[in-house]
Structure formats: C-alpha cells, structure tokens
Design a protein around this nucleic acid. Structure first.
Lengths: 300, 300
DNA sequence: CTCCATGATACCTCCAGGGTATGGATGACG
DNA sequence: CGTCATCCATACCCTGGAGGTATCATGGAG
C-alpha cells in the first residue's frame, strides 16, 4: 500500500465515478480501476459496491475514506512543518508522557517551552517503557511517567510522590469520609485507562488484589474525562492520582484514602551522562519551579 | 512522496546507518541511499547530516521522524480497523463537532453510541462550514456547531442556547459579581481557540468591538485546558460557553454576564430529507434525552 | 429493445525502483 | 604517517509494475 493508493481512493470516494475520478487525476480509467482493486485486495475488504451506474462506498469504505483524509492531511502538514523547521533553524525538543501525569502542572511546562521561538516542541503519549526506547533513539529528550525503570542509559529523577484519591459521585455514602480500600471494594469500579496496558488501571487492581480484596469492574474507559463522566453517572467509582482533583466536575467529589502510603510517584527520565542542551537547561529551570510550586501546594 | 519513502526513512532514522538499514529492509544500500536523497529533495530540506561514520538526524529530520512514525502507525491502524469493520458488517456513523461544544453532554452521546456493537463511531473536529461539506459527502452524518449556515441540503436544529460566562482567576475583583462587558474589557483577555479561525475567539472579540470596547489580548491559546491554565495564572480572563463551567479547576471561577442575550446556540446539522437510519434514530433518541437534561438543568 | 454510460479485461510500453560494481571520503589503528 | 576498514555516493544495468489504448460486459434509461 502506498500513498498513491490513498490519494486515488480519496478522489474516487468523492466522485463515486471512476471515469471522472481518472480525469481529475489526469490519468486513464483502467489503471485507476486496477489500483483501487489492488488496494481492496491488499486490505482484504470491498471498499466500493460497483454498479453499472457508478460506485457506492461500503461502510468499510466510508470509514476508510474518513481516515484516509486524515492521513493525507497529516502527511502534508508534516512535510510543511518540516520545511519550516529546516528553514528556521529551530531545534526539536521531544517530551514523552503517560496520560496520568498530564493533568497537573505539566501543561505549563509545555506552554512555557512552546513560547521559546527557537524550539519546536513535539509531544508524544508513550508508556514508561516506550519512553526509555524513545529517549535512547532521540525521539524524545525528556519523559514523564510513574514507573521506575532500570536502564543504564537513562536516569530517572523522582519529582514528587502523589497520594491516590478516590473519585466518587456526589452524595455517595463514602463521600466526606476517608475510606479504606476494603470499603471502596464494596462498590463497582470504573477502570481507566483501559488502553494501553499496563497502566494506572493495573496498579489500581493490584492494590486491591494484594490486600486480598475482590473488586467488580463495572466499566472500562480510555480517557479520564470519560471515566469521570461514568463516575458522575453513578456507574462506578475510580481511583486517580491527586493532581486529577484539579479537574473538577459537577457530580464528582474526590476523597483521600485512609490507607497510608498509597502513592504514585511522578518520575522524570533523561538520557544519562549527556551535557544538557540550552533547551534542556531551560526545561529544567521551568520544571524546578513547577515542582517547587507543587511541593509547597501553591498554584500554578 | 510515497509511504515507501516514509518506511525507509524510519528504518534509516533508527539505524543511522544506510548499510544496516538496507539490510534490515532486505535491499541493497545504493537504492536506499537514492530514495532518501530523493525524499530530501522533494521536501526541500536535509533530514540527515552525512559523515564517513554514518548519519545523524538534523533537527528537521528528528521532527520528521517523530511524525512519520505517527503516520505509519495511523495507516496500519486504519487498515486493521477497516478490515475489522468489513468483517463485522458494522456500519459507520460520523459525528463532526466544533471543540467548544464538546465540554458538555456531547461526550455522553458518543459514549452511548460507542456501546452499540453494530456501529463504528468516527469523530471529526470540523468547523461548522467544513461540517456542511462533510455532511454532503457522507463523511459525517451529524454535526454539532454554533454557527447557522444556510444550505439547501442541510437542516439545522437549534438544540439550545447557552449563555456566555466569564472565566476569572480566583480573587479577581469581578469574581462574585455579574460584570458587564465594559467592566471585563478593562482586563487583558486570553483568546481561544487561536486555531482554526473563525471561532469563539472572533465571536468574543466581535462582542466587545460591536459595543465600541477596546480589549487587549494578553495571550492566545489553542485549547480550553491551556486557556484555563492561563486564566488561573492570572495572565488574563476569557469568555466561555456555559457548559464549560462543568470543567472546574482550582483557581478559576465562572461568573454570568450582566449583559442579557449574550448567548451562543448549539446547533445540530443533518442531511435534509433523508430517511433516518436505525443508528440515526438511536442517536436522535439519545440526543433528545441529553437536551432535555440540559434544559431541566439535570446532570448528566 | 436499443443505446450509452460505466466499470472490467487484455495487452502493450516505458520508466523508475532495485541490483551490481566501484569510487571516494574519513576515522581507527599500529 | 601509512594502511585499513567502514560507509556513503555515483554509474550503469535490468525488470516489474504503473499507466496507456483498445475493447468487452453490464445494466439502467427511454
């Protein structure tokens, strides 16, 4: 499969007529017909229903069309941005993060760095394990996660430890208490993120399991916002790191847990033994302020 | 430019050695060398610095690498999802939305529809104008926006009107008041979204301008979360539709405006004169409940 | 029933992508 | 400092497949 196929497909999907599409693409109809067919063969699904009076998109074809447009747009945008970057002599700084660290002050780091006009920031949502790989390959320069990883080429700094909190629907029996895990285990759980694993979800499950508590998972969610909506809908309760409590929402209350030491660290990973670049130094300075703010409880 | 180029580039960027990369790709080194060069020519930027001891990514190359990985991943994911869709005989339902309507109950519609196991939901962030085009081409089946558009093939239903609110940092002089626009104009503004225009940002500016008020824009932001972080940092204040107040956040208070009639509608667009499909009927039913909840102030 | 628009098939052509051979540059090493 | 090893670039050849032309098959419109 090549971009050519996608480009052809898009035009055909818009025209729904091979002859017209071929004209638009400045080519003859038979080769276009063949390329489309070839692509269908490669995917292993019919994208069009053929008739004597033109084509019609199948459901799979509609779906493919939607995403093909997005892909082609991204390709164009990437090329354009790369050209700009090359001309402007800016430098790239990549930050990897696991979703659960992105509700606190990290967005502020991103904002500050974006304002530097000599740096092109690239964000990548990566698991902690992926971050190690991405650091080594130079894909990112800094990673934020919650898991300690032992790797000779990567050093991790513990920025701070965060207590876990329970997110409960308003009016829940345990609201306004500091419940134990045993108490929480009585209620169905909204697990998140469901993808990708392993994640906070497994950590949560592990907490209960290690105490011999059995939990029922009412629903899985991929994103925090969804999980909170589910909690507000009284479908279940969920555990979140403390910084999430900044994301307030009608119908949701956060309570600390009675069990002490239920914390989740936030770790910053960098390549070991590398002289910090000017941008890295700036990032470190900003980070220091943010961590200090966090420790002192000040905001932002 | 073809996907082949991107695939080659990725391997080379990882190996940083043409000979090894070629071996990994099961091809000889010279053609690989040529393809890379050809792509650099097409982009018009050097992606690698060549030396006798291998290659090094330029800043532009690093950036390109990052995004190339994402593109290739998306291609694979799209093909896989299309196959699944074709096998499962599910049907696609596309929803377009402008970002500013996505903080209220719309996520619930999405969640409900996702749970139907005969529908593959596709979400697309589109401007209202793009939504009309997307509806006609069948790219989406339902659109949510804030602008009325006159088009013979599209019908719009006004779901409800939303008052605008001001988001202020905690302790702001105007907090706990219902300020007039003139009062608000005294303070610097955080404008959002900065991209794509026209948007809520222009609506906000227009409100002030039409009253002959001059505002200073302290900062632009692309996303709500960023805008709110900026407001909390006391960089400025901003105007948001009412449903945003659900997104609570430490350091932020929302106040209604004294000026009456400052509302922003939420419109649902559909193709005109089309018999509603089973999924459309389900969507309409869910939507009705959500709108009723909204009107009655209940949650969710 | 006829016509014609439209997609499919058959077959040809030619270019570009891939291969082989080799040159040239540069860091490693004794 | 000379030699070697490594690695990318260049030159040239070959072949597969993308695209073209001619034509067939099909089915809805009138």
């Amino acid at each position: 499969m090549e971009l050519r196929h996608l480009r052809y497909f898009c035009v055909v999907a818009e025209e729904l007529n091979l002859t017209r599409a071929a004209a638009k693409l400045h080519m003859a109809q038979p080769p276009l017909s063949r390329q489309i067919k070839q692509m269908e063969g490669e995917i292993g699904a019919y994208l069009f229903e053929r008739s004597a009076r033109g084509l019609r998109l199948t459901p799979a074809g509609q779906f493919f069309h939607e995403h093909t447009l997005q892909i082609l747009e991204k390709v164009d945008a990437t090329v354009a941005a790369t050209q700009r970057l090359a001309r402007s002599k800016r430098v790239m700084f990549g930050i990897g993060f696991v979703p659960s660290v992105f509700y606190g002050q990290l967005p502020l780091l991103v904002r500050e760095l974006r304002q530097k006009d000599n740096v092109e920031l690239v964000l990548a949502e990566l698991t902690t394990v992926q971050q190690v790989q991405a650091l080594k390959s130079g894909r990112i320069d800094m990673g934020f996660g919650r898991m300690r990883i032992d790797d000779p080429d990567v050093e991790q700094e513990n920025l701070f430890d965060e207590p876990l909190m329970a997110a409960l629907p308003e009016g829940h029996p345990l609201a306004e208490t500091t419940p134990t895990l045993a108490q929480l285990a009585e209620y169905p759980l909204v697990l998140f993120p469901a993808q990708p694993r392993p994640s906070l979800a497994d950590m949560t499950l592990g907490l209960f399991r290690r105490r011999g508590l059995k939990v029922t998972v009412a629903q899985e969610a991929n994103e925090l916002q969804t999980a909170l909506a589910l909690v507000a809908s009284e479908i279940g309760i969920t555990l979140v790191p403390e910084q999430v409590k900044r994301v307030r929402r009608d119908g949701i209350v956060y309570v600390y847990l009675a069990a002490p030491g239920l914390t989740s660290p936030v770790l910053c990973s960098r390549r070991k033994g590398e002289a910090p670049s000017p941008i890295m130094q700036e990032a470190n300075a900003i980070l220091e302020v943010l961590v200090e703010n966090r420790r002192s409880g000040r905001y932002p």
